[in-house]
């Protein structure tokens, strides 16, 4: 991320006085204090508690645990592995599909056509919808008695009483589809903004040289979008990993724990199960995994390197 903070040198101005030198620190103080208190401190406390046995319902066992929590996570906790695996599956499916559809959508609404403004507003609208509201809407659609499937069955497609959310085979695609509905606009909006920053002259020059639509896409559009795509997929991946509300309300982690994500498992352990020590160790492990994946991804995608 170092490239992000590079800034062009500013022409030197007169030397600031002591008070003027303090001004920026006074200005950032509220933000810094809030972030220290509610981001940095909690992270440190997570590290601390990850090495402790700390459970308010079993105070007699509280105390230093060494690496005991971590040993339990790695070797003795099938739920951890199950939820981690599900989280990865969820993130990969969502980010991949959202990117593909978002890119296609952005390319379409970047064209000139009648009704473009309205179409944009409409296709982007689920962007602002919350996870719980998405659940509400899709539960109405998926309802076996009165949902879409009933009307499809009326029309001779499929069977009556199809309940996609309680069948372990269909619950994953059903949840993925609901999340896609509100996730695609995010990529579409970002990519559209970046598409508009491609100088038209590039396309004109390519057309003069006889490049067709596909070659223009692969040689101009895609390379130009690369950094934006890398960064937005990474942020989206963290966000989808973090995304508990939709799955929590749509499937409740079920059926039979098959859709429990890692953050949901952590929250259950720490807050409902009161096992702060173990939940902290789980959090630490999740952080390490996220950090590792982010670094590998940035390296592999050669983010920020000069393109030709």
């Amino acid at each position: 991320m170092a490239t992000a903070v590079a800034k062009p040198p500013r022409p030197p101005r007169r030397r600031p006085s002591g008070a003027a030198r303090r001004t920026p620190y006074v200005l950032i103080a509220p933000a810094v204090l809030l972030m220290l208190g509610f981001i940095a401190y909690p992270m440190l406390s997570v590290l601390y508690y990850s090495l402790q046995d700390y459970n308010v319902t079993k105070p007699w066992r509280n105390g230093f645990a060494g690496l005991g929590n971590f040993r339990r996570i790695l070797f003795d906790d099938p739920l951890f592995w199950q939820s981690l695996l599900f989280s990865l599956k969820w993130v990969v499916a969502e980010v991949g599909l959202q990117l593909a559809l978002g890119l296609a959508l952005a390319l379409i609404v970047n064209q000139t056509f009648v009704g473009r403004g309205l179409s944009r507003a409409l296709v982007f609208s689920p962007w602002a919808v919350s996870g719980v509201l998405t659940t509400t809407i899709w539960m109405l659609l998926y309802n076996p008695a009165t949902g879409i499937s009933r009307y499809l069955a009326d029309a001779g497609i499929g069977e009556y009483g199809t309940s996609v959310l309680s069948d372990p085979d269909t619950v994953f695609p059903a949840a993925v589809l609901a999340e896609l509905w509100r996730g695609v606009p995010f990529f579409a909006i970002l990519i559209l903004a970046d598409l508009q920053s491609i100088p038209n002259e590039l396309y004109e020059a390519a057309s003069v040289d006889g490049a067709g639509r596909f070659r223009r896409f692969f040689h101009i559009t895609l390379p130009h979008l690369r950094d934006a795509i890398v960064l937005s997929t990474l942020l989206r991946a963290v966000w989808e990993f973090n995304n508990v509300d939709l799955l929590y309300t749509l499937t409740g982690g079920g059926p039979a724990g098959s859709t429990t994500t890692l953050p949901l498992y952590v929250a259950n352990t720490g807050i409902d199960g009161h096992d702060f020590g173990y939940a902290s160790a789980l959090t630490t492990v999740a952080f390490v995994i996220l950090l590792f994946c982010s670094i590998v991804y940035l390296r592999l995608s050669k983010f920020g390197s000069d393109r030709t």
């Binding site: 509610f38 981001i39 909690p42 720490g270 959090t283 982010s294």
Partner: peptide, 16 residues
């Protein structure tokens, strides 16, 4: 801080 999932901060924040 953009890369810190809020869901993972629930437990320590709850304590604070």
């Amino acid at each position: 801080s953009q890369f810190i999932p809020g869901a993972l901060m629930l437990v320590p924040l709850f304590q604070i």
